[in-house]
Amino acid sequence: MTEQERVAVVTGTSRGLGEAIARRLLGDGYRVVGISRGGTTGITTPGFTDLRADLTDTDRCEELVDQVLAATGRIDVLVNNAAAMIYAPCWELEPALLDVLLRTNLTAPFLLSRDVLRHWVRSETTGTIVNICSIESEVAWDSPPQAGYAATKGGMAGLTRALAYDHGRHGIRVNGVAPGIIRTAMAPPEAERDLGTRVPLQGRLAEPEEIAAAVAFLCTEDASYITGEILYADGGYRLP
């Protein structure tokens, strides 16, 4: 079996970090299935498959792994990257909006992971999952306020540990990467300007490729004894 044949499923590939992760894994020799709501038009590399799905739709999430397997026959890597962000003071966040956050950022990763894990265990194969967490898996963020998002990213850390704990015995590794502030559309413009000053490492935001490199590392054999961990690629943001 060559690297060439390996399949990685990455969610949220239409832009930003997800796109960078997909490009990186393509460069590392994976075939990549990119899942996004509106489609991924930016990547035209052979080996990339554009799969459309709205991850807030739980019924749709439950079909996705089967759909990918039917097309590719295998999945080696799952990267749960897609996430919704809603800025609102906590006392104003409507339950319906919180529900969107929970479904996109936790339920969809759970369902995709569950189905991929089920496939690996039943077929006696293995693979690895990388969940994109956040510095907000550990610390709060207030400008602008985003308590709902923080809650989901804290939950993502728990999901990572729980799935790793339960499946270590099958040789399946589950890890997280917690990016600092990335230069993507998700960081609000004022973040780009001001927030660099809060980052110890040369006062700069992360390039998406630097986060993708951490994801790629966790997918390699070099990470063969690493499971249940959250790797913070945050330029030292949480240090002070």
Partner: peptide, 16 residues
């Protein structure tokens, strides 16, 4: 250089 944005991290390599 792959870890260019990682500092202050202590990465467990512990089989979980």
């Amino acid at each position: 250089p792959e870890a260019s944005y990682i500092t202050g991290a202590v990465l467990p390599v512990d089989g979980g």
